[in-house]
Lab assay of single mutants.
Amino acid sequence: MGMPNRKYADGEVVMGRWPGSVLYYEVQVTSYDDASHLYTVKYKDGTELALKESDIRLQS
């Protein structure tokens, strides 16, 4: 078993793309699913969504 190939840690605050949009919002990573390679993130309004790594970026 190798290390999970994840870029962002639980609790890390990053920018997540809103689905169907080009806009990124501040989100907190809450979990990562090794099987689906999706991150569960929480937006400031409390919305929780699963995002692909390509829809997440570090805060500038």
Results as ranks from 00 to 15, higher is better:
45 D>C: 09
27 V>N: 00
5 N>F: 10
14 V>C: 04
47 T>D: 03
13 V>T: 11
14 V>G: 02
34 D>Q: 10
54 S>V: 10
20 G>N: 09
59 Q>D: 11
39 Y>M: 01
28 Q>M: 14
58 L>F: 10
55 D>N: 05
60 S>L: 13
1 M>S: 15
54 S>W: 08
54 S>K: 09
32 Y>I: 00
22 V>G: 13
51 L>W: 03
41 V>R: 00
51 L>K: 00
39 Y>L: 01
24 Y>A: 02
8 Y>V: 02
57 R>W: 11
39 Y>W: 02
36 S>K: 11
40 T>R: 11
47 T>L: 07
40 T>M: 13
6 R>M: 02
8 Y>M: 01
51 L>P: 00
4 P>C: 13
6 R>S: 03
26 E>V: 13
49 L>R: 09
56 I>Q: 01
9 A>V: 08
34 D>V: 09
36 S>C: 08
21 S>W: 03
51 L>R: 01
25 Y>N: 04
42 K>E: 06
8 Y>R: 01
13 V>S: 06
10 D>N: 11
40 T>W: 14
34 D>T: 09
58 L>K: 15
31 S>N: 11
21 S>L: 04
35 A>L: 11
22 V>F: 13
22 V>S: 14
5 N>M: 11
43 Y>A: 13
45 D>W: 10
12 E>Y: 04
24 Y>S: 02
24 Y>D: 02
6 R>F: 03
53 E>L: 04
21 S>P: 01
32 Y>W: 09
29 V>L: 02
32 Y>E: 00
11 G>H: 05
16 G>D: 00
45 D>T: 05
24 Y>P: 01
40 T>F: 11
39 Y>N: 00
40 T>D: 02
25 Y>S: 07
43 Y>K: 07
55 D>I: 01
7 K>F: 05
1 M>Y: 02
44 K>M: 11
50 A>I: 14
39 Y>A: 00
1 M>F: 04
42 K>W: 06
28 Q>A: 07
18 W>V: 08
2 G>H: 08
3 M>S: 15
10 D>H: 05
56 I>R: 01
16 G>K: 01
7 K>M: 09
52 K>S: 12
53 E>Q: 06
4 P>H: 12
12 E>H: 05
41 V>C: 10
56 I>V: 04
59 Q>S: 13
19 P>N: 06
56 I>A: 01
26 E>K: 11
54 S>G: 10
52 K>T: 12
23 L>N: 10
53 E>G: 05
39 Y>T: 00
47 T>R: 11
40 T>A: 06
46 G>H: 05
39 Y>R: 00
32 Y>P: 00
10 D>L: 09
43 Y>D: 08
26 E>Q: 12
13 V>F: 14
12 E>A: 13
55 D>M: 06
57 R>K: 13
49 L>T: 07
25 Y>L: 11
17 R>C: 03
39 Y>C: 01
